[in-house]
Write a protein that binds this DNA or RNA. Structure first.
Length: 248
DNA sequence: AAGGACTCCAACCGCCGACAT
DNA sequence: GATGTCGGCGGTTGGAGTCCT
């Protein structure tokens, strides 16, 4: 247990004026929270915490529900499609995690934030380039293509060529539905993908653009990144990608 | 097999804006 | 307008699990 009282300790809560539990949630607490929200709905978190008999702060209840207990939350690895989308959205909006999360159904801002800090930044450091640069995105694309050139599709076997853009609002991402998602399937780029590939950061080599097919239908027939009516930044269009090809 | 290093992620904190009183 | 409360956000931490030697 640390000085901040993690590990399920109790302390005097400033807000509630009574002992407030902190640290990891127990199954019993989860059950209480889920049952209460099922009956009364979410919101009014401080009141909820008191009425449900949870010795937790409203904030803690909200966080637990939104990041873990909410049935909409997708568990499992972030797919390659999601990784590429996160990369693009982050280059647009920076650390606006909640905004980014809005475009990845079932993913929480906390999860995306963790992913960015633990994986993307590490890979970027490995490649000695900024994760928001075209070079880094090209490297990611390259890896995706290499991955795809192998035996498996990057998102397991859920690629569905009939996937169509849903009726999206401006800037809304076209993502595979959760039903198509490969929960639990390892599909992200691991460290090994980056070993000894520093040159990938300089030039993304695509051997055959003709054979390009979109991950889960993310690229339309004009090879635009999968935003309805919105090409996500010129750095992602195939023309520039072809330019990269010429640079090698 | 052991233990140190590393990775991942759940959960906390502080800050800020919106809203109520 | 001032103050208090609440919800939401981004940054950070540290425990648990995994990997490596």
């Amino acid at each position: 247990m640390d000085a901040h009282g993690r590990g399920g300790s109790l302390r005097t809560g400033r807000d509630e004026g009574k002992d407030t539990r902190r640290g990891p949630w127990t199954i019993e607490e989860d059950v209480i929270l889920v049952n209460y929200i099922t009956i009364h709905g979410a919101g009014r978190w401080n009141l909820l915490a008191r009425c449900a008999g949870l010795r937790r702060t409203g904030k803690s209840c909200r966080l637990r529900w939104l990041n873990y207990l909410c049935p909409d939350v997708r568990r499992g690895n972030i797919t390659v499609e999601e990784q590429l989308l996160i990369l693009e959205l982050h280059s647009r909006w920076g650390n606006r995690w909640s905004k980014i999360a809005q475009h990845l159904p079932g993913r929480t801002d906390n999860e995306i934030k963790n992913y960015w800090r633990t994986r993307v930044q590490k890979h970027a450091n490995h490649l000695k380039c900024d994760p928001n640069t075209k070079q880094f995105k090209d490297a990611m694309l390259h890896l995706w293509i290499r991955f795809r050139a192998g035996s498996a599709t990057p998102s397991g076997s859920h690629h569905n060529p009939t996937t169509t853009h849903q009726n999206l609002t401006d800037g809304q991402a076209c993502l595979p539905t959760p039903a198509h998602s490969s929960i639990g399937a390892t599909s992200d780029f691991r460290d090994s993908d980056f070993q000894g590939n520093e040159t990938d950061c300089q030039v993304a080599h695509v051997s055959s653009l003709e054979s390009w097919t979109s991950p889960s239908g993310w690229f339309d027939h004009e090879q635009n990144w999968g935003f309805d009516g919105v090409t996500l930044g010129s750095t992602w269009d195939m023309e520039e990608f072809g330019f990269s090809q010429q640079q090698q």
